[in-house]
Design a binder for these strands. Structure first.
Length: 292
DNA sequence: AAAACGGGGTG
DNA sequence: CACCCAGTTTT
């Protein structure tokens, strides 16, 4: 905690102002997404949608426009749906209870605990990739190969949490993001050096062990990203984001404009259908648009 | 248990 | 250029 007081990222916008709604928004944006890329998006988002009610009344299309550049666009849809459910099921008040939180769309075990800990200062351990890595290195040794099961790491992380959860978990995550990093840990700067089962860790050794225990590359890593469905989805959503609010584009126009994708009408149709199922896109007689 | 889901920074 | 990132949902 002394290290955190001195070197922690206290000015992150969801820490400078503590508020469960800001915690909710930040945690959705931070799923699988680095802090540096979230900060500017977060600030624009909470300015446009300052509270649960504003977000509950938002058009999905506007949420998705603010989501540009973050990736995993269904997170934006789910976040807006969470706001609606909070209004309809919880009277507009974000629950502090983990089970209630996890019943909401897009909130899994990590995010439920993160909202409870960061939003309500509950003594719970949100175990993200940082906490997982730190706990593994400190108590079980270097994580390549893994010597601890996920359940063991959860349990060990939870045992560490003091009475108030916010600063403790913030500290662990900052340590993981800046010192106890995945590739090139800076053990010589680490406040846990003396208690750590892995210190001092040499970056070259980490790299070698990682390589030795690397899983066989999945076949889709061998093909160019531009040929993947994910890429096609991204280009479709990008095109629909450009549409002025209220306007639509016909499927055939979309297919023509996205000719560089080299997708047949049938293939592109399947991409659009999946986006519809995911709640991002609406198909009407006038054409396609982001969902209202 | 494995795959799908984005996109940008990094060593 | 493979890996990594405040994970969750679907298959």
């Amino acid at each position: 905690m002394e290290w955190y007081a001195r070197y922690g990222r206290a000015t992150l916008p969801w820490r400078a102002i503590r508020d469960p709604y800001r915690t909710l928004v930040s945690e959705f944006m931070l799923q699988q997404t680095q802090v540096d890329r979230v900060v500017p998006k977060f600030e624009a988002f909470v300015e446009r949608f300052p509270d649960v009610e504003a977000l509950a009344n938002a058009r999905i299309a506007d949420v998705l426009r603010l989501w540009q550049g973050l990736g995993y666009n269904t997170r934006g849809v789910r976040l807006a749906n969470v706001a609606k459910e909070i209004v309809s099921r919880f009277g507009g008040v974000i629950p502090a209870n983990v089970e209630a939180l996890q019943s909401l769309p897009g909130i899994g075990p990590y995010t439920a605990r993160a909202i409870a800990a960061f939003g309500f200062d509950e003594p719970l351990a949100p175990v993200d990739t940082n906490v997982r890595r730190i706990v593994h290195r400190v108590f079980f040794g270097i994580e390549h190969p893994p010597k601890a099961a996920p359940a063991q790491l959860d349990e060990r992380a939870q045992e560490l949490v003091p009475a108030r959860g916010h600063d403790w978990s913030s500290a662990l995550m900052d340590l993981g993001a800046t010192i106890c990093t995945a590739r090139a840990p800076k053990c010589m700067l680490c406040p846990l050096y003396d208690e750590c089962a892995s210190a001092p860790l040499d970056a070259a050794v980490v790299e070698r062990l990682r390589r030795e225990h690397a899983k066989a590359p999945s076949p889709q890593n061998a093909i160019p990203f531009e040929t993947t469905v994910r890429y096609a989805r991204g280009r479709v959503v990008d095109r629909l984001r450009e549409l002025p609010p209220g306007e639509a584009i016909s499927f055939l126009d979309l297919h023509r404009e996205l000719a560089t994708l080299e997708r047949s009408r049938e293939e592109l149709s399947e991409v659009v259908a999946a986006l519809e199922r995911d709640g991002l896109v609406t198909s009407r007689p006038e054409g396609l648009s982001l969902r209202e």
